[in-house]
């Protein structure tokens, strides 16, 4: 797993690739927490390069959704591969966070 983040004020886009499971969910949590701790309230997680996520990774996303909601922003996902989208649907995450086709659309949703 690798996370590359670009910042713009209180909005950030984190591009995640590889695999998130119980072996590295803690690292993913630390990455997202560090971004939010920098004052980011609106976080876009770009899943274009994500090829695997288990419930351990979903837990991390849930925590980040809560933190960004509390900060008055939120968390949005974009570029989600079909098989990852199915995981989000089955786990009810599509009701907790919005899913956009592109990072630009996701970012724009926060400025409305």
């Amino acid at each position: 797993m690798n996370v590359e983040t670009s910042y713009s004020g209180s909005t950030a886009v984190a591009v995640v690739d590889g695999r998130i499971d119980s072996a590295n969910a803690k690292d993913f949590d630390e990455e997202l927490s560090a971004i939010i701790d920098r004052g980011v309230s609106s976080l876009v997680v770009d899943c274009g390069g994500l090829n695997y996520i288990s419930s351990a990774g979903l837990r991390v996303l849930l925590i980040a959704i809560r933190k960004t909601n509390e900060a008055g922003g939120g968390l949005a996902l974009c570029s989600v591969p079909d098989h990852i989208r199915e995981v989000l649907e089955v786990s009810g995450f599509v009701r907790l966070t919005k899913v956009f086709a592109t990072a630009d659309e996701a970012r724009a949703s926060f400025s409305k």
Partner: peptide, 16 residues
């Protein structure tokens, strides 16, 4: 159906 705030952290593995 619970909100992010009320969802338990966990319990999803067996569901999936």
């Amino acid at each position: 159906d619970l909100s992010a705030e009320d969802r338990r952290v966990g319990g999803l593995g067996i569901h999936l």
